[in-house]
Write a protein that binds this DNA or RNA. Structure first.
Length: 427
RNA sequence: GGAGAGGUGGCUGAGUGGUCGAAAGCACUGGUCUUGAAAACCAGCGAGGUUAACGCCUCCCAGGGUUCGAAUCCCUGCCUCUCCGCCA
């Protein structure tokens, strides 16, 4: 959520800034509402003060043993008056709050203009795109039946998968490797969290109220949701807290499954496990003091990149343009790994600085100095990395003509010391 | 699933209709004292809204209700804990 105060002071400036997202914010209704709010709040508070003073006086009079009936009669009408005005005030206030909740974060100045993916800005290409002197197989073919989406359809439906044998083990090894790297080399605290959260958590990080359609909701009495990313439970760990300065920065790494309805992506990426309703991700989350969040974004990004470097996979970095930016992010840098079968780079991580946008929704604060008033912290997150897509990249980039998969040295230890997997001989 | 207890400031915990945004202790901050530290003593110390500001208002899990007045009484919900049962 944006700062209501600065929004109020200059809503037009916010509307202008949001044009970078290709968004046309309608302020007409807001202005009227805000006017009402001010008047109603003033009236409400005046009546409250009136009642408070009268009640105090009644209390004092009664203590003196005086007859209070006349005084009581005098204020009785204030109550009903207050009730009416207050109800109106609350309605307006809630409407304003709801409106503010639907406004996305303001893009950082450095975010390039543009409407969609096409306008994203490539900032680096790292590693060498492999030259195959044979026809490359995509990950489904490379896996020789060990990635089985038909079987998953039998169990559940489309966009799910069953992964078997050595490929399943490779998938698990990747997860372990990512977690260990971030914990041991990048100083993260590993954390295990619920995969189901309630509404408040989803609002805290910005998935709700606007993007209910993207989520899986459980049919429970209380609204419960499957997490679309570990960002939700992990960032919300510190909801409604005031952290002391020496607790910052918080750096968490969590491995969770992620569940996304993928509404609106019918027909997209239908082959294999590229786009799934359920996938595994290792997620990095930072909570930092405001002055350090841009530096934190660089670090977070480098930590995620490091995984691809160690796996010997070619990738590029892309700054998302205004139109492609996620709702809560002020700036996002995607890491895209080379996918040979598609002959292009695809996203494996999205590293974002949310500034105080999530912190304001989730009330994540810190105290700059003992005795000083609390301030909102800044939050960031990024995948380190999406495991399924990294598996795809590995299978495709490191295949040879005989159907063998080269195993990077860093993974070898997780797979009993082998340096390749021979999938063709598995069948 | 059955039975009971409870949700108050960073923590412990008092408060059962008025002067309570809230005792006391701990923690923390500043000061006195000390070569320094500790102890002792003195002082300070919740969050939010609104306003140009003084100030005013709100908040004792959440939402309703009773009342001139609610942390305190009533209703609903959520959560936590204990015991029994069941269970990975």
């Amino acid at each position: 959520m944006l700062d209501p105060k600065s929004f109020r002071q200059n809503p037009q400036a916010v509307a202008d800034a949001l044009k970078k997202r290709g968004m046309d914010l309608d302020l007409s209704q807001y202005t009227a509402l805000e006017n009402d709010r001010r008047n109603l709040q003033l009236e409400t508070e005046n009546l409250q003060r009136l009642r408070k003073e009268a009640s105090t006086e009644i209390g004092a009079a009664r203590a003196r043993g005086e007859d209070i009936q006349e005084l009581v009669d005098g204020v009785q009408h204030v109550g009903s008056q207050l009730n009416a005005i207050q109800n109106e005030f609350r309605k307006v206030r809630d409407e304003l709050a709801a409106f503010l909740l639907t406004i996305p974060n303001i893009p950082d100045e450095s975010v390039p203009d543009g409407m969609d993916e096409e306008d994203n800005e490539v900032i680096a290409e790292v590693g060498e795109i492999p030259n195959f002197n044979f026809e490359v197989k995509d990950h489904v073919d490379v896996a020789q039946g060990l990635i089985d989406t038909d079987l998953a359809s039998k169990l559940t439906g489309s966009r799910f998968s069953v992964i078997k044998g050595p490929v399943a083990r490779l998938h698990r090894a990747l997860t372990q490797f990512m977690l260990d790297t971030h914990v041991q080399q990048h100083g993260y605290e590993e954390i295990y969290v619920p995969y189901i959260v309630h509404r408040d958590s989803m609002e805290g990080t910005g998935q709700l109220p606007k993007f209910e359609d993207d989520l899986f909701r459980l049919d429970t009495e209380q609204p419960y949701y499957l997490i679309p990313t570990a960002e939700v439970p992990v960032t919300n760990i510190h909801r409604d807290e005031i952290l002391s300065l020496n607790e910052l920065p918080k750096k968490y790494v969590a491995h969770t499954p992620c569940f996304r309805s993928e509404a609106g992506s019918y027909g997209k990426d239908t082959r294999g496990i590229f786009r799934q309703h359920q996938f595994e991700k290792v997620e990095l989350v930072h909570i930092v003091e405001p002055s350090k969040s841009w530096q934190a974004l660089d670090e977070l990004l480098s930590h995620a990149e490091q995984i691809l470097k160690l796996l010997d996979l070619p990738y590029r970095l892309v700054t998302l343009c205004g139109g492609d930016l996620g709702f809560s992010a002020s700036k996002t840098i995607d890491i895209e790994v080379w996918i040979p079968s598609q002959n292009r780079y695809r996203e494996v991580s999205s590293c974002s600085n949310f500034l105080d946008f999530q912190a304001r929704r989730a009330h994540i604060r810190y105290r700059p100095q003992v005795g000083q008033a609390p301030e909102l912290a800044h939050t960031l997150n990024g995948s380190g990395l999406a495991v399924g897509r990294t598996l795809i990249a590995l299978l495709e980039n490191l295949q040879d003509v005989n159907g063998r998969i080269y195993i990077p040295e860093v993974l070898s230890g997780y797979l009993g010391g082998i340096d390749h997997i021979n999938l063709s001989s598995e069948n």
